[in-house]
Amino acid sequence: MLNNKSSLKRRLQIVELVRKRGEVSVDELSQAFDVSSVTIRSDLTYLEQQRYLLRSFGKARYLAQKSGDDILVPASDAAIRKASETVLARFAAEQVVDSEAVMLGAGEIVHKMIPFLADRTNLSLLVQDVSVAQTVQRFLHCEVLLTGGQLEHGSTVMTGPDAEAAVSRRPIDLCVLQASGVDRDGNLLTADSALARVAQAARRAARRTIVVAFQPVLDERSGIVFASAKEIDTLLIDDGIDPPTMETVMHKGLQLQRRDTGILEFRAS
């Protein structure tokens, strides 16, 4: 019987099973995943809408993907993503201890850490995102400093030489950064070069580095390198990632330390 921890994971497994066999019936899928045919039909409806397969006469048929598409990483439901990001944020917050100087980079997962830090004492936070600083003031009683830097195109995230200098000259016990992807050499990627430069400066200055990511894409074209997996201490990602991404991470200096609540925690070996 196949593992059925979550609807998202089951859907990923369904796509892979249909891809391998070419065509699978609803009854076969129901038995394989130990769920009702109603649940399977709901899964197939979702996957057909996302154009990962076709439904026909009680069966699911594989739909060939366009070049460059990754069949194992469908666009997940917004609610599933929000829930996974919140759990990732909680796990990251658990690694922050009292009296630490912490640099918080840009990203929604990093932002969601703030309420989980409410019981920490004597923290000193250096933040890159103005909206994060505003959330800190709502939930925490601690020192909070902005990196300074440039705000472009209505963004709340500060970048540029001033931001890079700010993280370089301050003592940082821990920096928490968010990745958008991973390349095949095990490098962690972020959205653009300005974000990458600030992240690089923070990683170099910090004693420890945690990187968080929701379904990071295994694709050299999806961002700019800010760190190698060998250069960080902990990587927290959801277990909805595809097997090639997981293998890449494990072959580049990080070992799977914990699998819990749909979250994978990798640590430096």
Rank of each mutant, 00 (worst) to 15 (best):
K9L: 08
R10K: 11
L17C: 02
K20L: 13
G22T: 14
V24C: 09
L29Q: 09
T39P: 04
R41A: 14
S42I: 03
L44K: 04
L44F: 11
L44H: 03
Y46V: 04
Q50G: 06
Q50R: 09
L53A: 14
S56K: 14
S56W: 08
K59P: 06
A60F: 15
L63N: 01
A64S: 09
Q65D: 04
S67Q: 10
D70W: 11
V73T: 12
S76E: 02
D77H: 01
A79L: 09
R81P: 01
K82I: 04
S84P: 00
E85P: 02
V87P: 04
A89H: 08
R90H: 05
R90M: 08
A93M: 15
D98Q: 08
A101N: 14
V102D: 10
G107K: 06
H111T: 04
K112T: 02
L117Q: 08
R120T: 13
R120K: 12
N122F: 12
L123E: 01
L126M: 11
Q128G: 04
T135C: 15
R138V: 08
L140T: 07
C142A: 03
C142E: 00
H153N: 14
M158Y: 10
D162N: 08
A163Q: 13
E164R: 14
E164M: 07
E164K: 15
R169Q: 14
R169S: 10
A179Q: 09
S180A: 03
R184T: 14
L188R: 03
D192A: 00
R204Q: 12
A205G: 04
T209E: 14
D219E: 10
F226H: 01
I232Q: 15
I232F: 06
I232R: 07
I232A: 13
I232K: 12
I237F: 04
I241D: 00
P243G: 02
E247F: 09
H251N: 11
L254E: 10
D260N: 03
I263K: 03
